[in-house]
Simulated scan of single mutants.
Amino acid sequence: MAKLLGNLWNAVGLGGLLAIIVLWGFHGDNPALVNGIFRFLHVLLGIMWIGLLYYFNFVQIPTMPKVPAELKPGVSKYIAPEALFWFRWAALFTVVTGLVIALLNNYLVEALTLSPGYRVIGLGMWLALVMAFNVWFVIWPNQKKALGIVEADADTKAKAATTAMIFSRTNTVLSLPMLWCMVSQGALGGV
């Protein structure tokens, strides 16, 4: 068992296979299956995106000042770049799958224009779009400088680290109303 589950991709593959068996066993003949698959992917990717956002803000950023200087490269050269890879791609594909869901269910335009009945989900979508923009066009470019992935002098690295942190905290702030909008639309309506 340790050989099978010791490899992350074996574990992910096994989980995916079991999900397909459950999906096909219970919903294989359901015409809404494609919609269900996109909803599943949207939630899965959203968990990864927001989970990593919270990891950065609740664990990595507050802990780094306590890490001895000789150990910091372990985080900045190995852990942070890998986490940022999954963070930015999870952000992109969470947004893409969300837009596909809205399109499949014929409310994309209504949500994005905040039409009555779709204001809550629309606001959630706009917040997610702003957050994804921050990830790709502010946080990631600044993290590349701060982590030394691209050349930058010490002052530029420090400024980039601060900018990335402020926008990451901005995304943490936006994540709470965004998550509320996403989960309350179905339960409480779109207003």
Rank of each mutant, 00 (worst) to 15 (best):
G74M: 06
A132Y: 11
A158K: 13
W49G: 05
F133V: 04
T97Q: 08
L176Y: 13
Y78F: 15
L188G: 05
I166T: 04
I139C: 05
L53C: 10
A69D: 14
L99C: 08
A187I: 07
F56V: 02
W136C: 07
P73Q: 11
L44E: 10
V22F: 15
P81H: 05
I61L: 04
C181E: 00
T94V: 08
M131R: 03
L5Y: 15
L45N: 12
V34T: 14
L179H: 05
L114K: 00
A11V: 11
A164G: 03
F167N: 01
E110N: 06
N106V: 02
P177K: 03
L188F: 12
R119I: 08
G190F: 01
A187S: 12
L44C: 12
L104V: 05
N7S: 12
N30M: 11
L33A: 14
I47N: 14
D153C: 06
A90I: 09
P62N: 06
W86S: 10
Y118A: 06
I20T: 14
P31M: 04
T170L: 15
G15N: 13
K77G: 07
L174S: 08
T162Q: 12
K159S: 09
G46T: 05
L176I: 15
S168D: 06
S115W: 01
V100A: 14
T172L: 15
T170V: 13
